[in-house]
């Protein structure tokens, strides 16, 4: 069976490509994007150095075990937060800097506008966690070697954790777009997300693990094989769970954006 593409469909695809190109330029022409990608490299590197320095001290990782090595090499997931921030900024910057009216007069189809934001932001989020995990390996492997430990990065668990961490950024940046579309105030969206991911999620994982394992933080822990979090769902289920959270927030965010009037002060 052959499928034919109608002229309106072709025009629609062409317009979507144009809007994605526009969103790419938008993302790549602010310093904040570059700063977040660089921080995504630096913060996991710093965490890894701290982890190695704490070896042998109280609370430090036991690098004679695989779990300890994984703990040292687990900081890449911290870049997931910066990927989320890139997603949040992609939407909230439009409201903060009053560019949304211009954007939506250029792209009146809000579905197309939303999809383009997603298409331009997810690769950047993915890049954040790829950089983060690379930083962990670049810094962690030599430091562990200095301590006399030579982990095989192709070892099943370490490799799975690396792949899981790299996928994380794509999902959390999509999650960020959903958050930004739901909470248009940039300060509230960023502060709320940081507080939620660092405090609320940690509290759930520690005190109500039966709930925490199904929250985005629990899903992240499972897909990145975080050895400090117990009773997580299987890694693949973690990926699907985080994808479900991202899709849910995207749907809510899209409905919030597509319906009703654009705020008059934007």
């Amino acid at each position: 069976m052959t499928t034919t593409t109608t002229a309106p469909e072709l025009a629609d695809r062409q317009q979507l490509r144009s809007v994605i190109a526009s969103e790419w330029i938008r993302a790549l022409t602010t310093r904040t994007t570059y700063a977040l990608v660089i921080i995504s490299f630096l913060v996991p590197a710093l965490f890894t150095i701290t982890q190695v320095m704490s070896v042998g001290h109280s609370g430090g990782a036991d690098i004679s075990t695989l779990a300890g090595i994984r703990q040292v090499l687990s900081a890449g997931s911290s870049a997931g937060l910066f990927a989320t921030l890139i997603g949040i900024l992609a939407v909230t910057s439009e409201f903060r800097h009053q560019t949304v009216a211009l954007s939506l007069t250029c792209v009146p189809n809000r579905r197309r506008w939303f999809i383009a934001k997603l298409a331009a932001t997810v690769p950047l989020g993915f890049l954040c966690t790829v950089f983060g995990q690379c930083a962990v390996l670049i810094v962690g492997i030599p430091l562990l070697a200095h301590k006399g430990v030579h982990p095989a990065i192709w070892h099943g668990d370490i490799l799975k954790a690396t792949v899981g961490t790299m996928i994380l950024g794509g999902l959390t940046s999509a999650w960020g777009i959903g958050i930004g579309a739901c909470i248009r105030n940039q300060t509230v969206a960023i502060a709320g997300t940081i507080i939620y991911t660092t405090l609320a999620e940690a509290a759930f994982l520690n005190y109500v693990p039966s709930v925490g394992r199904y929250l985005p933080g629990g899903a992240t822990a499972s897909m990145t094989f975080d050895p400090t979090v117990r009773d997580t769902v299987p890694a693949l289920a973690g990926i699907l769970l985080l994808a479900c959270w991202a899709v849910s927030l995207l749907v809510i965010g899209y409905l919030h954006t597509s319906r009703g009037d654009v705020p008059a002060d934007s």
Binding site: S22, T29, T32, T99, L102, S103
Partner: peptide, 19 residues
Amino acid sequence: GAHPGRTGRDHLRIVAAAL
């Protein structure tokens, strides 16, 4: 309205690409 951290040319490049 325009992002203050962007250059004027980049601001217009975004609009041109979208159109």
